[in-house]
Design a protein around this nucleic acid. Structure first.
Lengths: 249, 249
DNA sequence: GTGTTTTCCGAACGAACGTTCGAACTATTC
DNA sequence: GAATAGTTCGAACGTTCGTTCGGAAAACAC
């Protein structure tokens, strides 16, 4: 778990990195700055060509740090991915909690949540894409650590939605799980199409997604067990022609 | 472009594969069946551990076909990915077009679109995950070919939404681009959480997502340029502490 | 200055990768 | 049965991968 502790040197500006325990604070700052410099470039490349097809030589080339030199700042390629994800998620959560405490209205709380998420996304497209797209690329403890943060984040979102529902749509209960993941889907999908440089401003994006979700969430009546007209569509929709068995002959 | 032609042997039940041009139809069918058998397993493994970290040896192990033997049925690992994506997408489109022609009501057309997409997703989670998650893993012609299909699919969705908007919400125009990608986000994200084996049935999933989207799309008013209360949040939301410049010192 | 710590890197390691080759085997045709 | 076409695979090729090692260079302490 050494790597998890070490992330403090990036996630919090507190005490120095623990890897080499430099004597003076000044050296520590230099170390942290360069680590961050490497992480920024790593995040960009991971976002461009995915974690698994990025080589340490790619990162070396992009940063100007030699291949061996990189290992002075991380203990493995996997730790680079972890530091990006954990640091990114940490900032999103940190900021969200700050902003939520200043508000009590359920609708505004949900709006703040969406606003915070999308603004971070737009301001850190590479890192957020890596967080969304490489969710399964970590293993073991590192994966568990990020998963845990993600679960707390998801639960928080869900509870915000539950409150909103209780307040404004106690009669028509949309499925909370579907609504929560639907919202995350809308928000996290934007790395596939949204360009922060283009004319669509973040504020407009936030407002539209907020409205889109809010009305759907509050206005939608529960799936009324009314069986959909063409439910004859229970026929096999498999992509494949053969039934799934082990051929072998 | 040979690979693109060859996919006919999987995507359409028509004439035989072109790679070895077998003489009798019987041999061709056997060839196609085994190719499909390989593709099914490949799709499952690609979905489990991603395309780039799956090795041909993994696929060899899972199928029982020797490493060299695989290359009798495909010309490269990339072609396996292409065949999965193109075949999968082809079926979704093919089926969708069939179903759309039987209906004219704009609302029902959108419902059919969502229903078709989600049912295919639920019935082919591995393949659809590969289609969603490995969108950038192909290169060159193969990528262009799938991108083209995807663009046509997206445009079709967008036009369905445009019709619905014209018919039922001509006054309040939600942003069509955001709505389209928002819908795709909700739908394609399900590979991150939905389990077709669990208690939530596909019909309920479809109904909920349809309602969630429909009310949001029709009920949401255009982002009214009303500047969001906490628009003070234009401060830097960067994950990183340092401004982005080339350090080098 | 000397001594010590931190930073950096050329060169190499073993492992794993995608792909190929040629020969062996099986099925089909006449 | 002989000839041909289709299928299978062990073994290897060349490349690239993540990581390590030992020591040079630079920064710091005194």
């Amino acid at each position: 778990m050494a790597a998890i502790e070490k992330q403090d040197s990036v996630a919090r500006r507190g005490t120095s990195g623990t890897k080499v325990s430099p004597r003076s604070a000044q050296i520590s700052v230099r170390y942290d700055q360069k680590l961050e410099f490497i992480l920024r470039h790593a995040a960009r490349i991971f976002a461009e060509k995915s974690y698994h097809s990025t080589s340490m030589r790619d990162i070396s080339r992009a940063t100007g740090v030699s291949l061996a030199g990189l290992y002075h700042y991380c203990k493995s390629k996997e730790e680079l991915l972890f530091l990006i994800q954990d640091n990114c998620f940490g900032r999103v959560l940190e900021r969200l909690e700050e902003r939520l405490t200043a508000e009590t209205d359920p609708t505004e709380l949900v709006r703040i949540f969406i606003d915070n998420h999308l603004r971070f996304f737009a301001a850190n497209m590479a890192e957020m894409k890596v967080l969304s797209h490489e969710a399964d690329s970590l293993r073991g403890d590192l994966q568990a650590h990020v998963f845990d943060k993600k679960q707390r984040y998801t639960r928080l979102a869900r509870s915000l939605l539950a409150n909103l529902q209780k307040e404004r749509a106690a009669d028509v209960q949309a499925d909370l799980t579907i609504a929560t993941y639907g919202l995350f889907g809308m928000m996290n999908w934007i790395y596939n199409w949204y360009d922060p440089q283009a004319k669509l401003k973040v504020a407009a994006l936030v407002e539209n997604i907020f409205q889109l979700f809010l009305y759907g969430f509050l206005g939608g009546s529960q799936a009324t067990n009314r069986t959909f007209a063409s439910n004859r569509t229970e026929e096999s929709l498999s992509i494949w022609r053969q039934p799934l068995n082990d051929l072998k002959a």
